[in-house]
Amino acid sequence: MPPRSIGEEFTKGLWHENPIFRQLLGMCPTLAVTNAVINGIAMGLATTFVLIFSSIVVSSIKKLIPNQVRIASYIVVIATFVTMADRFLAAFFPLISKDLGPYVPLIVVNCIILGRQEAFSSKNSVGRSFIDALGMSAGFILALLILSSIREILGAGTFLGHQVLGSWFEPWVIMILPPGAFITLGILIALTFVIEHKIKQRR
């Protein structure tokens, strides 16, 4: 496989290897925090912070770590950044932190993060790992934004707390509840499959 250009390294996370729609990784936070757009954004940014810094650290110390203890070291690195993100939110955004509850600490078991360290950062340069982490985070935020926008608009008639649908609209409460999360994500995954299929046919 020829080495990818920097641009491709970034954009692969948005579509071809989108962590949620294509790789089906990190489903738990995706489903749990997308009941409101603001929660989706906060979660996306917290995950981005953890992913980017873990990737930089792991790719810069990869040669020092013996193979046998690499997973344990990665976990400690990831957990350190997750704790930082969690404490930061609790200190400066207490309301969001309360809303997200255990899902911020749970970033530590988000498969996207450990997966990227194992599959990418442990084999690539710091620069490339940074671009890869940036792309994957962008893909993750994109997916969270799409899902939370659909759920908040249909489920509450609002976007970021502002009324967007008129009073004629009776909110579909079910969209904010767990079933709405599962069903919306199921349909979105089917849609990305259809689009991917169309793109392939055109080639």
Binding site: L177, P179, I183
Partner: peptide, 23 residues
């Protein structure tokens, strides 16, 4: 099952219906 829904798609929708029942 329709082709695009096979695998994860239909599984998630089934889970959604189960969650609905559990409500």
């Amino acid at each position: 099952v329709p082709e695009p829904l096979k695998g994860a798609g239909i599984a998630l929708i089934v889970a959604g219906i189960m969650a609905l029942a559990f409500l």
